[in-house]
Design a protein around this nucleic acid. Structure first.
Lengths: 219, 219
DNA sequence: GTCTATACTAGGATAGAC
DNA sequence: GTCTATCCTAGTATAGAC
């Protein structure tokens, strides 16, 4: 029937979620009051309850939507190539775009899921695990083919993701490095990590043959 | 005169700090009530105020002590050798021992300094910066000598530290990897990161100007 | 859809007895 | 050194008018 209420609803709904993201990111979920959210949107607390029945429903929605997008983008990136190197490149781009493109939302998703109740947390962690599995699969497949050389897939995956998430702490849109430059820099670091060090542990004599292992099969 | 009050005081004081660390780590500073701290120690909230005049004085003490220890250990590790590789090895060991040896305290130090007032936060960040500078100096010196090859010292330092801090999230004392094994694995990853891929394809002219950026914010 | 008004709980902090 | 008792503020959430 009438469209006005719907338009209005979508407006306030999104504004409430945006305000929640911003406050959850800077003050943490627990320290954020619904009064603050309401103030930021320009509504009263009572009005918030028209859109969400509890405070943690807001958090849940932020996480479900965000992780859903991340997972979808990740799956798309992985599907774009069968070459593990290209898959990692794609995942890096997706992850850094996500982390730097909306660092507040990324920080909330990263840090606040302890506040969800058991059931919700489980469903959110399932999304996160599915996403991390994309990385694990690409790394494992790269190792299987001898393109990557890592001793411990899980440790490497954690190091890579942790490294990328660091960007949510220091990335600024108007900083000295563009997002493209950052992606390139992280590609360098990621591919450095994806080769085990052992073949390199002998310090190269300067000037002498700086033989660097290129990606090659172990046989 | 009497020693009893002193002994008593030191006992409760440490117990209060330990309880605060544990609660700040699992629930966050803002979501932790002084009533919870008091309950955990077995005192009343009024008694807490005998030891600390405000809640954030507890947080400040945790951070000052912790970062002070970390900085001292870091300086010791760096002083133990002039070889940047050994310095990095020492810093890795110090950092991982700190992060895994008391992950709760490490998480508090890492995540909660936003709650300090401006003056206290400044002094705490100065400690953290001094510690991070140890890493930056070791990396820079390694690059100067042509031992390390990194494009961006700050980005690499951040990636390394972020990677290590990840251990506070997943390390368990009774997990499948011992702390020694983890240190070794991180040494591999760290030294992999400290050589960028690209410059290695060209043998660096030894001693010649391998111009390396000095420490600065990565952006 | 948004409001006013309000219920109820828990927060940090203090005074003063023991 | 630790307590009881209490102040005041801010928290989430709800009822019901408009």
């Amino acid at each position: 029937m009438e469209r006005a209420p719907t338009r209005k609803r979508e407006n306030s709904e999104q504004r409430i979620l945006d305000a929640a993201i911003s406050l959850f990111a800077t003050r943490g979920y627990a320290a954020t009051g619904i009064r603050q959210i309401a103030d930021k949107v320009g509504l009263t607390t009572a009005s918030l309850y028209y859109y969400a029945q509890t405070k943690d429903e807001l958090l849940l929605r932020v996480m479900r939507v965000g992780l859903g997008e991340l997972l979808a983008s990740g799956e798309e990136a992985v599907a774009a190539s069968t070459d593990p190197r290209e898959q990692i490149r794609g995942l890096l781009k997706v992850h850094l775009n996500f982390a730097a493109g909306n660092p507040e939302r990324a920080r909330v998703i990263d840090n606040e899921f302890q506040w969800l109740d058991d059931e919700d947390r489980e469903s959110v962690i399932a999304l996160r695990d599915a996403y991390e599995q994309l990385w694990a699969d690409a790394i494992t497949e790269g190792c299987r083919r001898g393109i990557f050389l890592v001793k411990n897939v899980s440790l490497t995956r954690l190091a890579l993701l942790e490294m990328c998430n660091g960007a949510t702490h220091w990335y600024r849109a108007n900083g000295p490095m563009s997002l493209e430059q950052i992606v390139l820099a992280f590609e360098d670091m990621a591919f450095a990590l994806l080769r085990t060090d052992e073949p390199l542990t002998v310090a190269p004599a300067p000037g002498a043959g700086l033989t660097v292992e290129t990606a090659q099969s172990p046989q």
